[in-house]
Design a protein around this nucleic acid. Structure first.
Lengths: 196, 196
DNA sequence: CCTATGTTTCTGTATGTACAGAACAAACGG
DNA sequence: CCGTTTGTTCTGTACATACAGAAACATAGG
């Protein structure tokens, strides 16, 4: 596998391409599933696939290789990488003797999901709470005609406030503590049923 | 406002329509925002809007009135209502002297979100975990070539297992306990740092 | 059994987004 | 500097899905 081949005109040949960027069946299965999963949670399929690929990779990968491996356009990869960098779960690294940007994913699952949750909170939950606050205020001013609306929106707002407050508690715990906590449900329940 | 008007040819007139199905500005704002929010989390806009509408409503609403109010096709409403019933967060009720099905939403926010989380877990997280389990097994069989892949997938699976186990603990708590818990983060942290 | 009323299913259209490919820009090496 | 490699932006197309409207279907009353 020589470098000259890699950039030769034969790169367009599928067989040649596969020689350079083949995924194992297991990795392929994960990449595809992760892509599907992404779409169901409002994340672009290619973005999720790239993330999966980098997560499984033993080494940083340059953009063109990602494009080859996943069989998508180079431009698509470029945009998706920017998106992932925006989320903060992948980053650029450089490899000696290679001008190209290489990309690697965070490897710590807990850290990764914490970042994702933080981001989604910031982008979606916080604005929702802001809207709810505003509407509750407006409903108060509007008086009796909006009394019921105010009550419903307050309930919703209260829910979000509790949930985000709670999430705030958890995300300040060290990662190990969360795991511990998950294993001692009964004692927690007891504490709560007696405590203030 | 007579019944004959409601089903008269004037129903097509926007002014007439509004007379029957007008939302307050506050309610409108919430319905629209909820619709946007839905799309970001992989839920159809109309579905989310209908849910918002029913959540704010003081009374059960028939499908055709929903269609009027939101300005969408009757068929669209029909499909969206089926979807929402599939989720289990709205139900059909009947009103005396009216043959039509009326729909009402769950009003308890906690119950509502618990149902939504349960459903999404069942539909998306559980299948993901099944896939991960299978792939981890396959990677074990595959031996050394897939050692790294196995390790990554195991980490991911472990994360999901902890999270779902944890969610299982929480969702068995009475609703009030969760709120309580959110307010006593420090004591919980202490417990965890000393406990088993 | 026919009609009025209501609901679901079917079919084509529209809309938004993802995506490929090309054009462009910048960085680098010779 | 000039050609080549690498990365980004732009433009049109394709695709998936949402949606409207119509037709078909169901049901209850008369």
């Amino acid at each position: 596998m020589t470098t000259c081949l890699k950039y030769s005109i034969f790169c367009n040949d599928r067989i040649m391409r596969n020689e350079h960027a083949q995924l194992s069946p297991i990795s392929t299965a994960f990449v595809l599933h992760w892509g599907e999963m992404g779409t169901r949670w409002g994340i672009n399929r290619t973005v999720a696939q790239i993330h999966a690929l980098l997560y499984l990779s033993t080494r940083p990968i340059p953009a063109d290789e990602i494009a080859e491996t996943l069989g998508v356009a180079r431009s698509n990869v470029s945009n998706s990488l920017r998106e992932l960098q925006g989320w903060g779960i992948i980053r650029i690294v450089h490899v000696l003797g290679d001008r190209r940007d290489h990309f690697e994913s965070l490897k710590d699952v807990w850290e990764m999901f914490q970042i994702i949750l933080d981001e989604r909170k910031k982008r979606e939950v916080d604005p929702t709470m802001a809207v709810l606050k505003r509407l509750v205020d407006e409903a108060k001013s509007a008086g009796k005609g909006e009394e019921h609306t105010r009550e419903r929106l307050s309930a919703m707002l209260g829910f979000f406030e509790t949930m985000t407050g709670w999430y705030g508690q958890i995300r300040r715990m060290p990662a190990g503590a969360v795991v511990k906590f998950a294993k001692m449900g009964d004692r927690i329940r007891k504490l709560i049923s007696t405590g203030t």
